[in-house]
Design a protein around this nucleic acid. Structure first.
Lengths: 120, 120
DNA sequence: AAAACGATTGAATTATTATTCAACTATATT
DNA sequence: AATATAGTTGAATAATAATTCAATCGTTTT
């Protein structure tokens, strides 16, 4: 039985295409990891933070000021970026300074800008 | 007055850094467009659809079967992808066939995979 | 050692996205 | 023309993610 009644009620399924595609599909795990990665720049706050950090090392307060947002929300975002290994931080007295720690983010930016320019 | 009391209660702001960064920041509009673009692959459903379409042209029902999801949710996602100019469709009888219509998506994929491999 | 300050954290709230469900369109088949 | 089928759509619901708020931590200053 190749047709899954629960998924779809059609009978035009191109079974060969479906099967061959299924065989080539990466694992769910890979898709989850990819999605996690792309989500990084899929939020303007994070994108701005990363863009800013690409220019200068900054403390949380600086970033909050650049983005005109609360320290807390910036800190939350920084903590997810840190967890993902996209930014690194160093403590100096009471302040915590952040820097970019990933080579692929810049590539993402460029690709995105290319896309936008191409589509408009 | 350079210090914005409403944003942040600290007084360690590195004003030169903040100002210079602000000057270099792209417009809010650009960030919104970028975010919209990155969100495309930031969802496993869409990522899978695009990966599948990169392999073969498929009708909605095929895609639903590859992903084991309902026609409706696939159709919703396809409509946003179409709106963004990422996929194209062609009608043939009752069926609608979709194909990839963007050069940057493949680049995104590759960059993402690179990132994942690098970080693990 | 107390107070002040920069930053972080967890829980609650708000905002945003994805999926489902039911109704509907358009084409094809009888 | 009536019925069936592939796909779409809008509104409702469910799931996810971002921000706020209040409390807290660690370091420095007094």
């Amino acid at each position: 039985m190749s047709k899954n009644e629960f998924v779809c009620d059609c009978n035009v399924i191109h079974q060969e295409v479906v099967d061959s595609t299924l065989k080539q599909m990466p694992s769910q795990d890979l898709f989850l990891k990819l999605a996690e990665f792309y989500k990084i720049l899929g939020d303007t706050t994070r994108a701005k933070i990363l863009f800013a950090l690409d220019k200068n090392e900054m403390c949380v307060c600086d970033i909050a000021n650049v983005l005109s947002m609360s320290k807390s929300s910036i800190s939350h975002q920084l903590s997810t970026l840190r967890r993902m290994g996209i930014v690194r931080c160093r403590k100096e007295g009471k302040e915590v300074y952040y820097t970019l720690d990933d080579d692929h983010v810049k590539g993402l930016f460029e690709l995105g800008i290319e896309h936008i320019e191409h589509k408009s």
